[in-house]
């Protein structure tokens, strides 16, 4: 089968909150979309699931920058995750999944990998 990805529309610009995140539901599960207007590009998408607890909360964390990297702090136990790479700053063995994200007119699109898309159909 041919590998195929799709750029799914997950929300519009009006749904975004500057300097913060919102959660969206995708065919790959829950994803957190962050909007940091001071950065270029300003959109980041990572898995909404906190890898330390398995709970869907990351969009509700505080964003910011640490040593120049854009980060979100988990609202549960406050570990920081790099929004570009998904890497956890406190534990090098832990990372969250990241997704390509772009703005298309008023629509925010997140790229969902095909393999996951198929397995997620349930």
């Amino acid at each position: 089968m041919k590998a195929r990805t799709s750029w799914d529309v997950v929300c519009t610009v009006d749904d975004l909150v500057p300097e913060s995140g919102v959660a969206v539901w995708t065919e790959d599960g829950p994803v957190a979309v962050f909007y940091l207007p001071h950065r270029l590009p300003a959109l980041f998408a990572v898995s909404h699931t906190d890898p330390f607890t398995g709970k869907n909360v990351l969009a509700r964390g505080i964003t910011g920058d640490l040593k120049g990297q854009p980060v979100v702090a988990s609202p549960l136990y406050k570990q920081h995750f790099n929004l570009q790479t998904g890497q956890c700053l406190e534990d090098e063995e832990v990372a969250v999944k990241t997704y390509p994200v772009l703005l298309d007119g008023n629509n925010v699109r997140v790229e969902i990998p095909a393999t996951n898309k198929e397995s997620a159909v349930a």
Binding site: V17, P18, S20, K55, N56, R60, I62, P75
Partner: peptide, 22 residues
């Protein structure tokens, strides 16, 4: 208020206390 929303801990943002299951 719009300017203050992103400053708050999740508890303040949603004006409730987050528990261990989110």
């Amino acid at each position: 208020a719009t300017d203050h929303v992103p400053l708050q801990d999740t508890n303040d943002t949603f004006m409730a206390n987050m528990q261990k299951n989110g």
